[in-house]
């Protein structure tokens, strides 16, 4: 049996979702954004809600996410995607609304909107892609940058030591990696909070299940934010090849940001 005999429509077992447009992703080779886009599109297609979905794209690498999803989209100001999603969901409660943000957008400039949207318990789905760095602006420190991690604005590594003694003693203090996902999980307004990854097929499958649940909850529910963090990579700004970046992610990002459900059906998961 030749390859040509196998490659026939009736034998197709996997292809990119029809809910993605034909526009090639502008993301760097190996970037997790593409994988996350793919599985969101698959979920929306499987749930059959493409004709009532409104997405909100961020400022950051995913700013043009609206070019790739064949659903209606609004592009938000930096950090304001949760406010935008709130605005839409409040006036169109029957539409399926999701925001898509990176770590700088969601956990630095948009912290206020993130926390209050979660605290109000808006019935929306929030996707948070955490790669520990600012991608679009060229690799500066993010709130989720690991301690010791070198970025364009922490060229000697992020230092998170509290200054010794009273006041500033000359040691740069960039603060600690911000665990925003754990933080919002403690708010009564969040229903489902989980942290996933997409660096290998098994984790992509898990992440897809999580995203599906996050949308199903919205479709079937009346309130409560469904929040999915994806620990991802930034090969270009980590200055690694894609495969090496994924390995670095497993060895360095995951110990700081462990994977798994944090809150399910409004209840914190016991560790």
């Amino acid at each position: 049996m030749t390859v040509q005999d196998i490659i026939k429509p009736e034998n197709l077992v996997y292809q990119k979702s029809k809910l993605l447009t034909n526009k090639p992703f502008h993301y760097c080779p190996g970037c997790g954004h593409g994988t996350v886009h793919r599985i969101i599109a698959e979920v929306l297609e499987e749930l059959g809600v493409d004709d009532r979905t409104i997405g909100v794209s961020p400022v950051g690498c995913a700013v043009m996410a609206y070019d790739y999803f064949d659903v209606d989209f609004v592009e938000a100001a930096h950090g304001r995607a949760p406010a935008c999603a709130t605005g839409i969901k409040r006036v169109w409660p029957d539409k399926i609304v999701f925001s898509y943000q990176g770590d700088g957008d969601l956990a630095a400039i948009g912290t206020c909107e993130t926390i209050h949207t979660c605290n109000r318990g808006e019935n929306i789905t929030m996707i948070f892609v955490n790669n520990g760095i600012y991608g679009m602006t060229g690799g500066q420190m993010a709130p989720t940058t690991l301690e010791g991690m070198k970025t364009a604005t922490t060229p000697y590594g992020r230092k998170a030591t509290l200054p010794a003694g009273a006041g500033f003693d000359g040691i740069p203090n960039n603060g600690y990696p911000l665990h925003i996902t754990e933080l919002i999980a403690h708010l009564p307004g969040t229903k489902y909070v989980t942290r996933q990854a997409v660096y290998d097929p098994a984790h992509v499958r898990n992440a897809k299940k999580a995203i599906k649940k996050a949308f199903e909850n919205q479709i079937n529910g009346k309130s409560g934010v469904n929040f999915v963090e994806i620990v991802s990579n930034c090969n270009s700004n980590w200055k690694m090849e894609p495969v090496a970046a994924n390995k670095w992610l497993v060895e360095n990002m995951l110990p700081e940001y462990p994977l798994g459900d944090i809150k399910v059906d409004g209840k914190l998961v016991e560790k």
């Binding site: 609004v74 938000a76 100001a77 935008c84 999603a85 605005g87 839409i88 169109w92 206020c112 909107e113």
Partner: peptide, 15 residues
């Protein structure tokens, strides 16, 4: 800030 961005998106949604 949040209020005007709610306005922006809800207005974009035709309301």
């Amino acid at each position: 800030l949040a209020a005007i961005n709610m306005v922006y998106a809800a207005g974009a949604a035709g309301k």
